[in-house]
Design a protein around this nucleic acid. Sequence first.
DNA 1: TAATGTATTGCAACTCTGTTGCAAAATAAA
DNA 2: TTTATTTTGCAACAGAGTTGCAATACATTA
Lengths: 138, 138
Amino acid sequence: MKNEVAEILKRNQLSVTDSRQKILELFRLSNSALAHADIEKKTSEQFDRVTIYRTLQTFVEKGIVHTIPTTDNSVLYALCKDNCSQGRHHDNHVHFICDNCGTTYCLEHITIPNVEVPGNFVTKRTDVVVSGLCDKCS
Amino acid sequence: MKNEVAEILKRNQLSVTDSRQKILELFRLSNSALAHADIEKKTSEQFDRVTIYRTLQTFVEKGIVHTIPTTDNSVLYALCKDNCSQGRHHDNHVHFICDNCGTTYCLEHITIPNVEVPGNFVTKRTDVVVSGLCDKCS
DNA sequence: TAATGTATTGCAACTCTGTTGCAAAATAAA
DNA sequence: TTTATTTTGCAACAGAGTTGCAATACATTA
Ligand SMILES: [Mn+2]
Ligand SMILES: [Mn+2]
Ligand SMILES: [Zn+2]
Ligand SMILES: [Zn+2]
């Protein structure tokens, strides 16, 4: 729904532009996380590389998407569900990266366990990334 | 101890070269994880960039160091303790990245919790990365 | 709806990171 | 010491990410 996408942008005080609409739509249609390269492949005819970088950055800042750490010099992005906002992500779920097909899933229903850290360390964020074989590859 | 470093290399069926000795020593002297860039800064007068890339790759393959996922298009490396070997890492600990000073610690004594995944997913590896403020920055 | 100010985009140029092939050098084996 | 094997450095390249700036698109107000 183009309209719903525009709503999300407005709610986040972003002007509604073609690139933001299209890229946000891509995330909504995908059931897995996307890398910059994925988005570039699907939209490079339409948008400049730089625009994609800036759009992703903006989405992260606004709490529209969240990042997923990886071990291969890439960053993955996925939609934040509920009520994330500027600087406050509430995506408290585990991520799964398939070693075989590379697909990365937000396991929305599996919550991050509480992890103890030494006395004077302060936890701001905890990422849990599981890798292995996804349901399609196992 | 240069000698001990050489022992580790031999034990892993690697020929003992200047760059491997020096880089491995760097890891042993550091109490935090190192990125490629860190090693380059400390040794670029001595070794070519390419050699550092290849050395790190070799160390990971042999189980001498392990990687730590990040959210910023970089990969961190840290020494494996005990008995990791080719393809079999037993580093089952949590990592902590300080948002302020950037230092990344292996929390050797905090073990990775068991994380449930959906039925047909197969877990091969679980990474837990906590970020926030380290003891020096809090 | 049209005019205006503001925010976003595309482009060009650049830097930084990582990779590859190959000849020279270093290491290990005999 | 000689020889075979492995590793290194260099050069060249490819790809990823950044920045400044002018052109364009968007939001606002009249
Ligand atoms: Mn997610
Ligand atoms: Mn570690
Ligand atoms: Zn898969
Ligand atoms: Zn710190």
